[in-house]
Design a protein around this nucleic acid. Sequence first.
RNA 1: CGGGGCGUGGCGCAGUCCGGUAGCGCGCCUGCUUUGGGAGCAGGAGGUCCCCGGUUCGAAUCCGGGCGCCCCGACCA
Length: 486
Amino acid sequence: MAEEKGLTPRAQDFSAWYNEVVLRAELADYSPVRGCMVIRPWGYAIWELMQGALDRMIKETGHQNAYFPLFIPLSFIEREREHVEGFAPELAIVTHAGGKELEEALVVRPTSETIIYAMFAKWVQSYRDLPLLYNQWGNVVRWELRTRLFLRTTEFLWQEGHTAHATEEEAEEETRRMLGVYRTFMEQWLAMPPLTGLKSDSEKFAGAKRTYACEALMQDNRALQAGTSHHLGQNFSRQFDLKFQTQEGREDYAWNTSWGATTRLVGALVMTHGDDAGIVVPPLLAPTQVIIVPIWKTDEQRAAVLGKAQEIAKALGTAARVKVDDRDFLTAGSKFYEWEAKGVPLRLEIGPKDLAKQQVMLVRRIVPDGAARKEALSETLAVQQIPERLSGIQRAMLAEATRRREANSHRGVRTFDQLREIVDGVGGFIYTGWCGSSVCETKVKEETKATIRVIPDAEFRSAEMPATCVVCGEPAATEVVWAKAY
RNA sequence: CGGGGCGUGGCGCAGUCCGGUAGCGCGCCUGCUUUGGGAGCAGGAGGUCCCCGGUUCGAAUCCGGGCGCCCCGACCA
């Protein structure tokens, strides 16, 4: 009985586990339209908590929210050459509306650079109008062939920041700043420590001059791109005539940046912290942080136990997001499994035996090795301790994820054979030298399926810069990090 | 778009070879007993068997055509 209700263990089949756990935790479900998904309340509540935190950070760095339309004239997309080449295969195009064929087809936005910079061009005349620091929350559509819930769907939700600056330096600074915001957000809220750095030319955003990214390592040792920040140079401003008069009276094109993070982060959360019992949600992102499960036999006990459960929930007040599971058509045991699958960090069990002793059973969703999962605490102590317990769990989750990332980072890899052996074996982040040639890059990709995730930022670089390219043996231009990616 | 598979109550499937009362598990509903790790018993509801056509006394089953979905190979957050 128990076996058939369990999830496929991660070690047996990670992607089967992922699909099952997303459905079991009621994060999302498949929609009637191929490649699209429905985000269910539990998944959406997690997303809303992410949104709230990231939105505050975006505003704290001086940005304002706005909203640009879903439909973009096809000609806009076509204006920037690299951009259109990057997106052409995955565009959804509206050719008919209002019962007739449209004069100009409309693209359902795959991203909003074109329409936003077209509008910026109307609003900017002078250097005094710069910088423009905009962000928008919305949905985008990219027609995908192979889809997976949260990780790759035809429609997804995200925020996209778009800025315009008077100088290249300022734009570069902005690009780096927002990469840092993502990194901090992922560490503090998702308890997921990304590796940050610069994308190689072949992996950068279509139309960007440079792309920086946060790459997180999932439990199957594959990398997941979790947030990107692009320095767009003057590529779009030239095409959309986004120019301004400088202080010296010259005319110049503005420098743009764009940066985005998506509902893919929910998938990242699942694959970073989940275990064979379900997902594990970091306390800061848990829609319910404490689930109280009352246990009773008789009606008399039911009243007393429920009364106590409500009392404790009330005592916690705003110190934690708490909920009493008072459904009387389920046994306590089945509720335990359900909330564990959904990743609620703490559970309080209250039954007649506890009432008699004025105590509650506090059960942690995850525990350090060897620690007891359940402990009896007095009612008052439990209420007092819960906020600190939650922040302790948040810290422990980041520490564990960081430990795992480091344990699966392979440095000092010198030869192609070594690289191949790790990619085909344990996987993880592989640090090597690289000459900078796309020929070498392509060779690794074709022969191992691993790609350059990033040219790592300074703090991630190895103590000793690798001397030679892992492929051709020529002097290395830089250190890079390889991994199989989602 | 090339190769493989599948369409049968909400979900997962059996039945198709060899035509003859549409079945099983889970879920759902009602009642009683239950509730400290996925409850038990009893009763019950729920089906254009993907669609169209053909063969036949009779088609989920055989034949023809169509549609849809899933899995595997080139791009992407």
